[in-house]
Simulated assay, not measured.
Amino acid sequence: MAPKVHAALYSTAAMRAFATLHEKNVEFEVVPIDMRAGEHKKEPFLSLNPFGKVPAFEDGDLKLFESRAITAYVAYEYHGKGTELVYHDTKKMATVSVWIEVEAHHFDPVVSKLVTEQLVKPMLRGLEPDSAVVEENQKKLGEVLDVYEARLSKSKYLGGDEFTLADLHHLPAIHYMMGTSTKKVFETRPHVSAWAKDILARPAWIKTVAMQKQA
């Protein structure tokens, strides 16, 4: 049976899982979750993720939640299919793991606030973005991306010279930010800008975005 991803198609966390499955050429089923109706806060979804957040994932008798745990499982379980996404050399993988942590603890908290202000509030709630919050977090994001700029001046991708989960985990937020004023924070850093364009053009990511248009 194909793995199942219980999710809303527009969720950044869910899009990480979709992109990983596409990179690995793994067929999967999406079980739609209507977050506006609060389905993620009710049974049967809570039996899959007791924290009430998407995505939740099933592969046979295995049930997982937390998007980065799902992407790691897919990358290792389907070793030999599609893009490797992880290294089996421990020193190389240690470097990838550092940048996976950087994305989770330095990049994502800042950019999530920008996604909320610039996209979620106006599109889903009919509210104006708080310009002070946007400005503050664009400055914070710039400080994070200065570190990325230095790293990407030395290697093509964050974890080395090959595309890995360290890069993939950034895709949903970067994709959304390209439609906002935060785009300039990426574009003013040449190595970051080139890296973002490269990963956004990957066929697996294009397939992930297309899922929203087909829904």
Rank of each mutant, 00 (worst) to 15 (best):
F186H: 13
W195K: 10
M93I: 00
Q138P: 00
T90E: 05
G82S: 11
T83R: 10
T95F: 10
L165Q: 11
H106W: 02
L124A: 15
K92F: 03
Y176F: 12
A132Q: 12
A75R: 07
E136N: 14
K183C: 10
K91D: 13
F28V: 15
A215P: 15
Q138V: 04
M15F: 00
H191M: 08
W99D: 03
S193C: 12
R125C: 06
E23Y: 04
H191K: 15
D198R: 03
N137A: 05
E43R: 09
I100M: 14
A104R: 14
V110G: 07
T20R: 07
G159M: 10
A69T: 05
W205S: 10
N49A: 04
D167C: 05
S153G: 04
F51E: 02
Y176M: 12
P32S: 05
A72P: 08
T182D: 03
V102S: 12
A204F: 06
F186M: 07
P44R: 12
G159P: 11
E143S: 14
V110F: 00
A75E: 07
G179L: 04
T71R: 05
S153T: 03
T71D: 08
H170P: 04
Y176D: 07
H88I: 08
T182N: 11
H6M: 00
G142R: 07
K121C: 02
M93W: 11
L114P: 09
K213E: 13
I70A: 09
K4T: 02
F163E: 13
L119G: 06
P190E: 01
E187T: 02
